[in-house]
């Protein structure tokens, strides 16, 4: 029981970080960026390349990972998504293919073998009799710091308020002088940076493999839908619902059914309350 609580809380923190960027893009631009999980995967590889293969310090590894994923996100937006903001299907399909392209490129660069990223913080701690890796604790602390920073940004800065305005009422926001293109670009950049941080921690929590993006993508889907697409608070709450359910399933039933409870809740929520638990 303690184990479910502790591991669930830790896993939820990581999920929240990954889903955050995903939900922001939907909130502002009303498109789903399926390549988001691809950025997470590429960021993990960039970090591994910089710190282990090139021998750079950890900080430099972070910087490179964040730079790469932000660059990819901005590139995706400027490259073609900007032109298709009114056609979600095209964005949906093209970003899905783009994630696949990222997978192929990473396979060409790093091969298909599983690679383990050395933990950023070494060691284990016993919490209430359960072994918890310090690395995961650090990851969750960093996640919460990032989430806090994003919340602060969205609530307290001019750009953040513009993002919220755009999410609430697109036409009204444009009339009141907000440049939607600029706001969208900022959102994509922030979401890319979040994917970078998430990628480093997700990679060091699990391992690196070019198909790493599939599971985080599916989990992010479930989280953002349950929380209400576009709602940051909802995402936080839903990440914890999904995280705890998942940990409980893995520990009590079967680890192969890991993703099922989240998806079942997602379907129920969608059919019963399509706006999500916290959506407007």
């Amino acid at each position: 029981m303690e184990q479910i609580l502790i591991q669930g809380a830790l896993l939820s923190g990581l999920y929240a970080l990954i889903a955050m960027g995903f939900t922001m893009i939907f909130g502002v631009g009303r498109v789903l960026n399926l390549a988001h999980a691809g950025y997470v995967m590429v960021a993990g590889y960039s970090y591994f390349w910089a710190t282990y293969m090139m021998g750079l310090p950890i900080v430099a590894g972070f910087a490179i990972a964040i730079a790469v994923s932000t660059g990819l996100a901005v590139g995706t937006y400027l490259g073609w998504v900007r032109r298709f903001l009114n056609d979600p299907t095209i964005v949906f399909v093209s970003t899905f293919i783009f994630a696949l392209i990222l997978e192929h490129v990473m396979t060409l660069a790093f091969f298909r073998e599983n690679i383990n990223v050395p933990p950023i913080v070494v060691g284990m701690t016993q919490v209430m009799g359960c072994p918890v890796s310090n690395n995961l604790v650090a990851a969750v602390i960093a996640s919460w710091a990032c989430i806090g920073a994003v919340l602060f940004f969205v609530r307290k800065t001019h750009m953040g308020r513009a993002m919220r305005a755009l999410a609430m009422d697109r036409r009204g926001a444009i009339i009141s002088g907000i440049n939607p293109d600029m706001v969208n670009l900022t959102t994509w950049a922030i979401s890319g940076a979040l994917a970078g941080v998430a990628g480093v921690f997700w990679g060091s929590y699990t391992f690196l493999v070019p198909s790493l993006w599939v599971l985080p993508l599916i989990m992010s889907f479930a989280i953002v839908v349950i929380g209400g697409l576009g709602s940051i608070e909802g995402t936080l709450a839903a990440a914890h619902i999904v995280g705890f359910m998942e940990t409980a399933t893995v520990l009590a039933i079967n680890d192969k059914l890991r993703s099922v409870p989240g998806l079942v809740i997602m379907i129920i929520v969608l059919l019963a309350r399509p706006k999500g638990l916290f959506g407007r």
Binding site: Q3, Q7, L215, T247, D255
Partner: peptide, 9 residues
Amino acid sequence: TFDFTPVYS
């Protein structure tokens, strides 16, 4: 499987 904590537990 990507998270082996429960497995090893």
